[in-house]
Amino acid sequence: MKQLGVLALAGFREAIRNRVTVVVAVFALVLIALTTVVMNLTVFSLDRVVTDFGLGVMSLLMISLAIFMSVGMLNRELERRTVFLIVSRPLSRSKFIVARYVGIMVTLTMLLAAMSAVYATQIWFFDVPLHNSMPAAIGGLWCQLLLLSAMGVFFSSMSGPITAAICVVGLYLVGQWTADLHVIAVKLGPVTGAIARAGYYVLPNFARMDFKPQAAAGMSVTLGEFVDGLGTSVGWSLLFIVGATLLFQRRDFK
């Protein structure tokens, strides 16, 4: 437990001092602040723009960052051989992976919290009526980050960063539209329908964690819906992390 703690702390320190993370974070804050200007110029419904644009920017940036951090992490450590200094301690490789994953999530959670604070300020500033779907959308985004990072760690434990990124992005896009793909595939014929149904149940369904549409439409999110999204995320993440530790167990560090 202590080892996990110190490793996650070091990972977090590395991440926040890494220029890329900082640049992305600053960029995000600037973009969100920019929405304020945009909103002053639009004549359309202000509430909708605030929720839509703010949440959209936040999720796009956080998702990119989650993928960037998770697919690069193991390979960077292997390439620069920092991993040698860690796993030469009395610590299993599984612990190393979990600690790295926790470190990424701590960093992402802090950034998400900072962005949410800016977002909340905007909402307050423009007197947008509060709605339970707004925090739900942010919570849902966190669930997506949890799963995306786990996927990134999984794929990077067996391949290079670019392949891993392609896999994660591919699965994410498919996972966004599994429901739609399902409908289309069923219409095309029984075989594709069966494949799509299998895919629908076998692939992680990101749409279940995405509450932005409800937030934009001002619809509420029920506790059941949220728990469903959280459960999907946690379940899949566990699976991916366990897979990553198994793959990593006997890999040569060169």
Binding site: A10, R13, E14, N18
Partner: peptide, 23 residues
Amino acid sequence: PEAPVPYEHLSGLEYLQLQAGLA
């Protein structure tokens, strides 16, 4: 290790604290 490249964003002190924790 041979020609080690440690976590460059950590200070020497933080690196050693990490090692002590891992030990």
